[in-house]
Amino acid sequence: MVAYIIRRLFGAVLTLVVVSMITFGIFYLVPRWAGGTAESLASRYVGRTANAQQVADAAHGLGLDKPFFVQYWDWLQAIFVGRDFTGVGPAPVHCPAPCLGYSFIGRNPVLPDILDRLPVTASLAFGAAIIWLIFGVSTGVLSALKRGSIFDRAAMGVALGGVSLPIFWTGLVSLVIFSYGLHWTKPGGAYTPIEVNPGEWAYSLLLPWITLALLFSAAYARLTRAGMLETMGEDYIRTARAKGLRERTVVTKHGLRAALTPIATIFGLDVGLLLGGAVLTESTFSLPGIGKYAIDAINTNDMPKVMGFVIFSAGFVVIANLIVDVVYAVIDPRVRLA
């Protein structure tokens, strides 16, 4: 088991390195394909009065005139030892380790900004995850047990709608109805940190949670239903019933447990993805999380921020994958040997 975990850890690190190289390559190569030079890239950060020498100094100080692999190595190294940038401003700029990049537009290191926004994204992701897990799975189980009934058809119809409707539409419509029409929920952007007031925190996130959960619940309901239908047809379920077990025990202990295995897998990945930034939900509800940070960075062409976001998000996905792999190995020993 230890060897398996070490193997998976090594694979996770390798994945992150590959992702970072590809991302860095995109940000390095695309501007150059469009005709950008080290100087033209540096000219964004030096102000309008800079002369050609100052621009060249900045290009050199930022390392923009170095080859791709040297620049990548500098970036990678900064994660462990930090980095000093020169040529931009009268004094050198220090980005302390772990340095995921330095925004010369915002004039601050990227990582503290991302960490500052992580609680918002985590609040959104975990709250919504609990709701969609409870509603999605229970709806799926009931639909499977009442297959063909009106409830089943209605639930699957709603689930199809939930999957199909984009969150920027359901989000805005629900804001108009529940926040501005009925005044039941908080308006967009009304986020209260949990440490300030837990009640307000939950109330301010209620609508984003429900809207986001609607999207995911739908998929989980369909997945659970399919799994339950398959499981409940198995021989061992018949055996359990033949033993005289109560139907509730048959469903929960024998049927649902087996059907939940793929749900656990996808749940881990979904939460990992959301922790890396629920871009559309945060933008729709004006929540200052990591996803909103990424959108703002893209809109302002702040490449160090975008790069930092991509690596951070990729990290969450890779960690989620790792956890899922380990959990799988615990559930099914055959995986360890594969």
Partner: peptide, 19 residues
């Protein structure tokens, strides 16, 4: 002053009177 609000939501909030 809130920075980074959804542009459509800003309009809705002004119309509603909450902004």
């Amino acid at each position: 002053v809130t920075i980074g609000a959804n542009a459509d939501d800003i309009d809705n909030q002004i119309i509603d009177g909450s902004l």
